[in-house]
């Protein structure tokens, strides 16, 4: 589903390479995790895939089901089925959460040549999805993420994911700032979305989220490259020994 080949990226503002040849392939139905120390390029990878400005791809490719992601606008990537759950969900004063979600859903549908969803049907859909994530009606009425706690923001990201129903979900440090209960809620939300047609790339610093969202494959990223790939046991190894051993090994 997601194929990244030899991806090199630098910052636009300064000539500083961040990604130095990332190779990664995630198949439909799979859950991959990327772990790595701070500054290894994990978040940059997620931003570059989603189309955030400020980065320059100097080499390599990234495709989603064969479509060249890097040639697409962020909204086109979303309509093609890519979703990034932000590490820091953005507050948008004045835009109601519900309006935001419906606008997004219908914009994607329109881009795909599908019919827009009516208000009644949308309301039913959002109520059902929100209930599962313990999101109350009040939170849906409030402006996007404004005044939300850390946990509420992350649950709101998963709600958006559930509504937009993307095929490739990237979760960027979704566990950061969450207590154990909130993490379980978020993980349950993600697990409920797992199916044969959908893939996940879970970016995390710690192993604990992976106790709840069980990955099929774990990658270790360091200094802009994937330095090791293995099964779930790799995450446990990181948990036990930290990154130092692995980094020393590949250096």
């Amino acid at each position: 589903m997601l194929d990244i080949r030899n991806l090199h990226v630098r910052l636009e503002e300064e000539d500083k390479p961040i990604l130095k040849g990332v190779d990664l392939s995630v198949g439909a139905g799979a859950v991959h995790a990327i772990m790595g120390p701070n500054g290894s390029g994990k978040s940059t990878l997620s931003y570059v895939l989603a189309g955030r400005e400020g980065y320059v791809v100097t080499e390599g490719t990234a495709t989603l089901d064969g479509q060249d992601l890097l040639a697409m606008e962020p909204e086109e990537r979303a309509a093609a089925g890519l979703f990034l759950a932000f590490q820091y969900p953005v507050e948008i004063p004045g835009v109601g959460n519900m309006t935001f979600l419906r606008t997004a859903l219908n914009a994607q549908r329109k881009a795909r040549g599908e019919e827009e969803m009516g208000a009644g049907e949308f309301l039913k859909l959002i109520r059902e999805k929100a209930r599962r994530l313990n999101i109350d009606a009040e939170m849906l009425k409030r402006p996007v993420n404004v005044g939300f706690s850390g946990g509420e923001k992350k649950r709101n990201e998963i709600l958006q994911m559930a509504i937009l129903s993307p095929k490739m979900c990237i979760l960027d440090e979704t566990d950061s700032g969450l207590d154990v209960d909130a993490m379980r809620l978020v993980a349950d939300g993600v697990n409920a979305l797992r199916d044969a047609g959908r893939a996940f790339l879970v970016i995390t610093h710690y192993q604990r989220l992976l106790d709840h969202i069980r990955p099929d494959v774990v990658h270790i990223m360091a200094d802009g490259r994937i330095v090791r790939t293995g099964g779930p046991e790799l995450a446990l190894e990181v948990e036990r020994n930290g990154y130092a051993d692995i980094l020393a090994e590949v250096a």
Binding site: E73, L84, F100
Partner: peptide
């Protein structure tokens, strides 16, 4: 326009022009 908010909206599939309008409307809402 808040570029971070604009990117967030676009990353959810809202095209740039519509996303800008949405942020302008939010700005004048008060």
């Amino acid at each position: 326009i808040d570029e971070t908010a604009l990117f967030y909206l676009r990353a959810r599939g809202v095209p740039r022009a519509e996303a800008t309008d949405l942020l302008v409307l939010a700005f004048v809402a008060e």
